[in-house]
Amino acid sequence: MPAIYALYVINKSGGLIFNKEFVTIASNSLNDTLRLASIWHSLHAIAVQLAPAPGCTGIELLRADTFDLHCFQTLTGTKFLVVAEPDTPDVEALLRETVYDLYADYVLKNPFYEVEMPIRCELFDQNLFNTIAAVHRRWGLVH
């Protein structure tokens, strides 16, 4: 069954600035998440250098047996990571349009947010939760 597990936001220097889990993930501590963020940041940068294809922009999707990790990097180097159930449809579009839109609206237009710092914006949390809940309801998942 398709499901969105978690969303992470990584700033351009590789620090985790936002993490939100929509489904309880077993044994996933904050330390693990921070580690994942910085490792992903480095792997992403190395992949750009190593890729045989010209014009490579980094890793967009990591497929594992138990999850898919989608990554979307903005033009300014901020990365949005979504951990989802394997073969969850439309995650790319969700990241590129919905989540990025919410970030642009409720984080960047907030005068009390400092760029590159951890995101603590109530309205962003609320709207993100509502959006993901709506997507999940469409897939028949109940929060």
Binding site: D105, K109, N110, F112
Partner: peptide, 14 residues
């Protein structure tokens, strides 16, 4: 609409 007032600013409203 887009402004979340942090807790430490108390009753401030834009």
């Amino acid at each position: 609409k887009y402004i979340s007032v942090p807790k430490d600013l108390g009753t401030f409203t834009p």
